[in-house]
Design a protein around this nucleic acid. Structure first.
Length: 477
RNA sequence: CGGGGCGUAGCGCAGCCUGGUAGCGCGCCUGCCUUGGGCGCAGGAAGUCGGAGGUUCGAAUCCUCUCGCCCCGACCA
């Protein structure tokens, strides 16, 4: 039975490992609805922590939460040409309600630019109403051919920020500001290093002028788009006549942005840090920081051990850590070790009669799994130190992995050869045709043009024409 | 939509070819015993065999239709 609960090793089959982990760590289940998943308490707790932190960041940047309808009149979507073209194949449409065919079908929102603009157009009259900074936490639906738990499901949870500005510059600044919030969140909380940069024309959001993204590398060297931020220009403003009277007394269209991250982040979290024993969660996003596993053969041994364990748990909780005592005596300590490694408890504390005799306990960090004896008097301080260090180590490890799998490639042959090696930095002439050819030939796509990459002109890797700089190319989720 | 796979107890599967009392492992419940890396023993509960139709004395098994899900491709956060 020990074998039965083990995950498929990453080396053997990364995607089987991922599916095993998601289900066995009780993060999510398949549901009876095609393409839709059930997010279980363990998985939802991660989402709640992500929400809590991000929501705080949005409040700090002055955004306010609101909620708009799930159903959008079909005609709204059609108002912005590129937008409807981009989303049409992915729409679920409600045609009947109340026992009758609807006059006009509703689409289930794939994103909310259109219906939100309907409101914005009513709310905004003057430049004094700007900037308008709104965020919505919601579910959206995009019909997918192929689904993958957390990474791509037909229904998913996300936040979508929508803002209106007086000038083009303000909108651009907002787009970049929120991308930076995402970058900070990914790196500081998820311990997931990302490349922030600009998407190519063909990879940008349907209806945007410019799209920026943060891109992370998973342990299988594939890229995950972890967040996007769009400068919408006046595209939606024109379609919905979202206008304001400017300082010059004339009517102007507002300049807009939108930006979002989704439950996909949970998939990124898993594929960045977890191992063959199970889930690894960065302490800053964990609810379950520690578990104390009491050990004892007889009631005489167990009594004092349990008492000490409870006292220790109380101390750790006072220090702000999520800590439980696993006192279920129908399970052996070994079983509990394996179980807590599987579900991603950040650290475990073993406490038995031998430890009590020496006034110590044994602490084990989830990411390293090395036993360390710690005097009980230092337990709280040591636990905090270990968790801090774990947070830093996870980021450093992920960054080292990404950096050692990032390469400059200078010929098309080299790019083809290295297609599975990770992030490839290559010159590209900005012609979508060359980008398309790379995709058709190798299956890899352009991720973004990283801001932090020092750029110098060169020659397009496909056609040899002038290139303004390098893009990151990679196989992507 | 093309190719492949699978629907039998909560989960994982066997049984189907060659029709005849629906099984195994894990989990679950009860009791005992154990506890420093997924303990052991005994007893127990639990199944419209995805659905519909057909063949047959008799169908999980054979035939027809159908529904669903998963994997691989085209599309995508």
């Amino acid at each position: 039975m020990a074998q039965a609960d083990k995950l498929t090793p990453r080396e053997k089959d990364f995607s089987a490992w991922y599916v095993d982990l998601v289900q066995k760590a009780k993060l999510a289940d398949y549901s009876d609805v095609k393409g839709c998943m059930v997010i279980r308490p363990n998985g939802y707790a991660l989402w709640e922590n992500i929400q809590r932190v991000l929501d705080g960041m949005f409040k700090e940047t002055g955004h306010k939460n609101a909620y708009f309808p799930l159903l959008i009149p079909e005609s709204y979507l059609k108002k912005e040409a590129e937008h409807v073209e981009g989303f049409n194949p992915q729409l679920a449409v409600v045609t009947h309600a109340g026992g009758a065919k609807l006059e006009e079908p509703y689409v289930i929102r794939p994103t909310s630019e259109t219906i939100i603009n309907r409101s914005f157009a009513k709310w905004i009259q003057s430049y004094r109403d700007l900037p308008l900074l709104i965020n919505q936490w919601a579910n959206v639906m995009r019909w997918e051919m192929r689904t993958r738990l957390f990474l791509r499901t037909t229904e998913f949870l996300w936040q979508e920020g929508h803002t209106c500005h007086e000038t083009e510059e303000d909108a651009e600044q907002e787009t970049r500001r929120m991308l930076e919030v995402y970058r900070r969140f990914a790196e500081d909380y998820m311990a997931m290093p990302v490349l922030a940069g600009q998407k190519s024309e063909s990879e940008k959001f349907a209806g945007a002028v410019r799209t920026y993204s943060i891109e992370a590398m998973m342990q299988d060297k594939k890229a995950l788009q972890a967040g996007t931020s769009h400068n919408l220009g006046q595209n939606f403003a024109r379609a919905f006549e979202t206008m304001f009277q400017g300082r010059d007394g004339k009517q102007h269209f507002v300049w807009q942005t939108s930006w979002g991250v989704s439950t996909r982040l949970i998939g990124g979290l898993i594929m960045t840090h977890s191992d063959d024993a199970g889930l690894v969660v960065p302490p800053k996003l964990a609810s379950r920081h520690g578990v104390i596993i009491p050990i004892g053969r007889t009631p005489e041994e167990r009594g004092p051990v349990l008492e000490r364990a409870q006292a220790l748990a109380t101390d750790l909780r006072k220090a702000g850590l999520g800590v439980e005592v696993d006192d279920d005596d129908s399970k052996s300590p070994g079983w509990k070790y394996a179980e807590h490694e599987l579900i991603g408890t950040c650290m475990r504390i073993e406490l038995g009669p031998k430890d009590l005799a020496q006034n110590q306990c044994v602490m084990v960090r989830r990411d390293q799994r090395k036993k360390e004896s710690v005097p009980l008097a230092d337990a709280v301080a040591t636990a905090q130190k270990m968790l801090d260090q774990m947070q830093r180590d996870l980021f450093a490890k992920a960054k080292a992995f990404r950096d050692s799998h990032t390469f400059e490639v200078n010929s098309y042959d080299e790019l083809k050869q290295r297609a599975d090696d990770g992030f490839l930095l290559a010159h590209w002439c900005v012609d979508p045709k060359c980008e398309k050819q790379i995709k058709d030939d190798t299956g890899i796509t352009s991720r973004n043009r990283p801001f932090d990459l020092e750029q110098s002109p060169g020659r397009c890797i496909v056609c040899g024409k002038d290139s303004p700089g390098r893009l990151v190319f990679a196989k992507a989720y």
